[in-house]
Write a protein that binds this DNA or RNA. Structure first.
Lengths: 113, 113
DNA sequence: TGAATAGTTAGCGACATGGCTAAGCATGAC
DNA sequence: GTCATGCTTAGCCATGTCGCTAACTATTCA
């Protein structure tokens, strides 16, 4: 657990804010300019910019400036590390529960006459 | 997006810390006392207690005190909401990419002689 | 009873986060 | 050129987070 770990922290932290999650959902429909993203939130532009910076540093979006308009787009696959971690945990947790089940079964068999 | 949303934020925030993730991984092996969890981290007990409180408030673990020992255990299924959200996003993102694909195909067909 | 063990509570300090305003570029329209 | 538009930068404030120490409570062991 090294850089991998820091990346995961950054990723989960970026997802831990409703405003940022809403922005991602909006961007799922397609690329959008900064102002378009700001609109629905009711937040001021500088605040929105910070959220976008967090998303970009976490690798969740990419942005590019064309003229005076910055367009933001989702980065497909950026969620994968989070998904993978969750899957691994679920596997570990289930493995333990399965072992518990097996143990209970064994004990029950031993108690048979 | 209502209470559901706050829960998700709490969940992702709880996961956004390497120490807390390590604790969860440790707990996947089986229940453990507070001191057992503190050991590997090198952190002081009060600090560990705060992390445990965050995990418990997020619904990721349950704790119970027996005598002077508090035992912590994983709460199976607590990760599901996070997983579900990630799956939904992936579906949305892919749906858009599919539509893009379809559009490109259409354009290419039109350009045929 | 007295001492070691396991948590707990209270409170401090450094730093991060999330919001804002005000002012400063660029770029595109006229 | 001039001006509106769209973003950017700088900086302020309140609050939250993460670490710590010190002092306290409650069990258990001898």
């Amino acid at each position: 657990m090294a850089k991998h770990d820091a990346d995961l922290s950054q990723l989960f932290h970026a997802l831990a804010d409703p405003t940022r999650r809403a922005m991602l959902t909006r961007l799922a429909e397609g690329p959008a300019a900064v102002s378009d993203l700001a609109g629905p939130t009711g937040l001021r532009l500088p605040t929105v910019m910070r959220h976008l910076a967090v998303l970009e540093e976490a690798g969740l979006i990419t942005t590019a400036k064309d003229g005076r308009i910055r367009t933001c787009a989702i980065e497909p696959g950026a969620l994968d590390p989070a998904r993978t971690w969750l899957d691994e945990q679920r596997a570990l947790w289930n493995a333990r529960l399965d072992r518990l089940d097996a143990f209970v079964m064994t004990v029950m068999k031993e108690r048979e006459p």
